[in-house]
Structure formats: structure tokens, C-alpha cells
Computed example of a mutant assay.
Amino acid sequence: MMIQATKWFLCVMMVIASTNAGLLCADQEGESSSDPVLELVGKMTHPELREVSGIEFDQSQPGVWWAINDSGCEPKVYRMDRWGEIIVDNDALDDVAVGFELTGAVNVDWEDLTIYNGMLVVPDMGNNWNARQNLGIYFAELPSAEVMAGPLEILRHVRVRYPDQETFPATQFEFDCEAVFYLDGKLHVLTKQRMGQTKLSRIGTKLYRLDKEDEEVVNELTLVDRHETIGPWVTGADVSPEGDRLAVLTQFEVWIFERPEDSDKWLSEGKATRVKLPRDLAKQAEAICWDDIQTLRIANEQREIYTLDVRLCDEEMSADALTYGS
């Protein structure tokens, strides 16, 4: 009896220690193990970076990340260093202009960005009330390393719509997007869902693909896949440099999906690792990107930047076996 009580006490203490360590990784039985792999690496202190909603690593410019602000802010992209500081000319004055403004663009609700084929890709697809009929994507050329700030010409603007949204606003709020990535030459978007027609969060997401980028028409997205238990609130996504893993950021977790063989159905057919984020650190996590094949970068609305070493949390389980809250 004493031995059993001692074992029970040790188990309780291990769970407490794991929770205090910060980051929990779901294993194949749905239980939790932990490693202190979420590391604070910087803070975005510049006053123009007041509500960062998307970040992306620039593989063409070492040590450079791009960031955008949320709805209502200037239609700008910002070049940052690894610590979250805006990169400016060392000889510039303190009040020098920063950021690159997309000429003629409007930031109705920018929530994520990505890079493809030498272009910055900025979707304007935030849709809190599911009533927008002007969803679109801006494409702009990546500024050269020698240019610190200034206007940025829009190469093209592509309008899009969801194939399964029939009313505006929708009867069920599941047509908001805060997460995008490019893969195999096509843009993919993940939705953020709410309960009914309310602001209340709801678990689940849908994955769409943009098959055409015709500037003359409204391009219909293709519904590819869905996941009923991820979340709540998908707020960011990025595909790994090698294209074999998809990181999806939610309000409380990061899900890492392995690409299924001969399929685009990452969510329902891919193997997945679910990483529970410590709420006292992640807070309101809004943006995620891969720094390299083993490191994820996460930014929150409190302007903090963290990195996550995925090597220290590599348990796998099939996506359909994961249940939120397990």
C-alpha cells in the first residue's frame, strides 16, 4: 500500500513538474510529456510593429524575417532581424521611415503572409463577420537587401471566394482566414472558425487551395481537406523548407503534420504531433514560420518572439486520433 501511494505521489509531482516546464507534447496514448523547448528570443519594440499578425523567414536574405500588422494598420511589410528589431540603415536618424508600403493596397484585415518565387504574398482575407465579398491576395516583389524602406509596387492582386459560402454573412462563421502557405506552386489557406454567428471560438479548420490566379475574375478556392478537432482558432501556418511538414498554430497549441504520400490531405491523412503551448508564455499567439528544418518561430500580440525546437517534441500520432483537450 505504501509503495502504491509513493508511486501515486511521484506521478502527481511529475505532472506538476511537466506543466511548470512549459511545453507539453502529446504522445500516442494522448498523455503528455514535456521539454522546455519554447524559448524567448526577442521582442518587437518598434512602435509601428504594434499588432503583428504574420511573420515569414526570407531564405534569400540570411537573418531576415518579414512581418505585417493586423487590420486597420498601414498596408506595409517590415523587414526584421532575429530579435524582432526592424532593420534600418546604421547611419540613419532615429526618426527614419521604416517598412515598405504596398502602393495602392488597403489593409482591411491582413492576418498572414508568405513568400513564393521571389514575391511577398499578402492575403487580405481576415473575415471576422464572414460578410466580406472583397477577399483578395496581394503579390509584390521582394525588396533587395540594399533598400531599407519605401514604396513597394504591387505586381498583381487576385480576388478569391470560398466555394461553399452561399450567404453574406455566412449562416455558420467558418470563412475567416489567418493562416496561409505556398506549396507546389499554389497558395493554400486554412480557416478560423466560430460558433454560429458569434465571436465565440470553435474548434476545427478547413484547408483550401487556390488553383487559378486570374486577375480578371473572382477565383474560386478548392476545398481540399478539413479537421474537426484542431484548435480552437487557427491563427497561423507555414510549410517547412523541405515541404514535408506543415506547422499549424492555434490558440493553445502547435500542430505539426507530416505530408501524406501522394496526397494534399495533410489534416486527415498526415501523421501529426500536437504541442501544447504554455499560456503564460504564448499568450495570444498570432504568427508562425519555420526558421529552418528544426526550428519554428512564434510571435504573439504582446509583441514577443519565441522559438520552438521541434527535435525535442517528435512523438507522432495519426491526425484523426487526436482530440482537443485529451
Rank of each mutant, 00 (worst) to 15 (best):
I3D: 15
M13E: 11
M14R: 10
N20C: 11
L24Q: 04
G30K: 07
S34Y: 11
P36H: 10
T45D: 13
H46T: 07
R50E: 14
I55S: 09
Q59K: 11
S60E: 14
Q61P: 11
W66Q: 06
A67D: 09
Y78K: 08
I86S: 01
N90T: 03
A97I: 08
F100K: 04
L102Y: 02
L102C: 09
N107Y: 02
D112T: 10
N127D: 15
W129H: 12
W129T: 04
W129Y: 15
I137P: 00
A140H: 04
A140F: 06
P143N: 09
P143I: 08
V147N: 04
V147L: 06
A149I: 00
P151I: 08
F168Y: 15
Q172V: 12
F175D: 01
Y182I: 00
D184T: 06
H188R: 15
R194T: 02
G196T: 08
T198F: 12
T198M: 07
R202P: 02
T205D: 05
T205V: 11
Y208C: 01
Y208N: 03
D211T: 14
K212W: 10
D214F: 06
E216V: 06
V217Y: 08
V218H: 04
V224K: 02
R226D: 12
W233S: 09
D238H: 13
V239Y: 05
S240W: 01
P260E: 05
L267V: 01
A272V: 13
R274L: 02
L281S: 12
W290Q: 09
T295W: 02
L296R: 00
A299Y: 00
R303I: 00
D314C: 08
A319W: 01
L322Y: 09
T323L: 11
T323F: 11
G325Q: 05
